[in-house]
Design a protein around this nucleic acid. Structure first.
Lengths: 209, 209
DNA sequence: GTAAAAGTGTTAAAAATTTAACATTGTTAA
DNA sequence: TTAACAATGTTAAATTTTTAACACTTTTAC
């Protein structure tokens, strides 16, 4: 398979999540327009994405939920799984851990880090909290590839640097401060304020129409 | 001004955040390539966005930080400001409140809601926590326009419905479960699992190159 | 048993977004 | 004072992403 569009990757992850819920409900097949409705997109787009990954459904029956879940897994998961760490065990860090607990077998949050001595040494929802001093050792020992940053904004830049030095290959930055990473490290940034401002903007726009 | 591209709106919010930091540092002017570097985009894109909002910098001097901040504010903020509520005062809800505290004068988190009796009646970082039963009354009384959903996934659909019935005009859904809203309500959904899966995917991809 | 309906899969067109190209103009330096 | 430089502003091209169009096939209804 050639490379999939950026947006398709995101949607595949979302399709899988929707499919897992369907599976729980005992649904064995699903139509493109059903997936589309859940995700607020069009059925064409769903079919096109599935075409891109080479999955073919059954005419008039739709797609086999289980098969499709497995196929998406083959594409986006890595076979051995990936170990993840959370830097910053504040509210957001803990929210992520709870959110995640046992959700994806191929993505394991295996360690957390903080600077607060009261937290260090404890375990939160099954995730041990280490001192940030230990970052490099733990990352190496646990073969951690991805780091999620949930530290206060003022520590963002330094934390990113530490992560890179520790050998992390991907960073998900939830602080409101953009950071820089060298070539070879994948960086994804998300800022909650921007999302909220966007919602507020479109609400305002709707009112003034 | 005609309508701005979706993506430009997002970037304007981000530019402003970067500019506010520059202002704090005492910087009065900034070049397009400096903004670009911070946001990991190209200078052309910055200039193009600013062109779209009709801002014109000084040749060889760059853009006036303060002016630009104000102009972006005129565009994305609403004059009177918008009141916001958070539904679900768990870790994520509290993280957002702290994150936000006093950051944007035009976006005010004026109320939180929960079902847990231990939380109801308390104030967290200056935000009072009400019972979800009171949603409609409080939304009306406080003129709340936007709701942020940080409830457990199982309550997502019901919560969205409550918000819509209460007269909310925009929803930011942080639960992993997509919800539906009627015409006239702006919906933005963000799923942290998808972001993490995306990072993991590109890390895997880089390794197998 | 045949026509209509309801799906899928795919190619082509359209729309949105990003990037390139370049004209323009203050500023600096010889 | 004039040439080189370094920035902006804008039009045009390229790329990415979405949507439309439609051929095809199984099922359903009569």
């Amino acid at each position: 398979m050639k490379h999939l569009p950026h947006k398709t990757i995101e949607r595949l992850s979302q399709y899988r999540r929707a499919l897992l819920l369907c599976l729980e409900k005992g649904k064995t097949h699903i139509y493109s327009h059903e997936i589309a409705k859940i995700q607020h997109i069009t059925a064409v787009q769903v079919r096109r994405d599935l075409m891109l990954i080479g999955y073919t459904g059954t005419l008039r029956k739709g797609y086999n939920v289980k098969e499709l879940i497995d196929l998406i897994g083959n594409i986006i998961d890595s076979e051995e799984g990936i170990n993840v760490t959370i830097i910053g065990m504040g509210n957001l860090g803990r929210a992520l851990i709870n959110y995640f607990a046992g959700k994806r077998s191929k993505l394991r949050i295996v360690a957390g880090f903080d600077t607060n001595p009261d937290k260090i040494g404890n375990t939160m929802s099954g995730v041990p909290c280490h001192s940030i001093e230990q970052l490099k050792e733990v990352v190496a020992a646990e073969d951690i590839k991805v780091g999620i940053m949930t530290v206060p904004a003022d520590y963002a830049v330094d934390t990113a640097e530490l992560l890179v030095k520790a050998g992390i290959k991907g960073i998900l930055n939830y602080t409101p401060k953009p950071v820089n990473v060298p070539e070879g490290v994948y960086l994804e940034e998300y800022d909650m304020i921007t999302s909220l401002e966007k919602v507020a903007f479109y609400v305002k726009l709707q009112e003034t129409d």
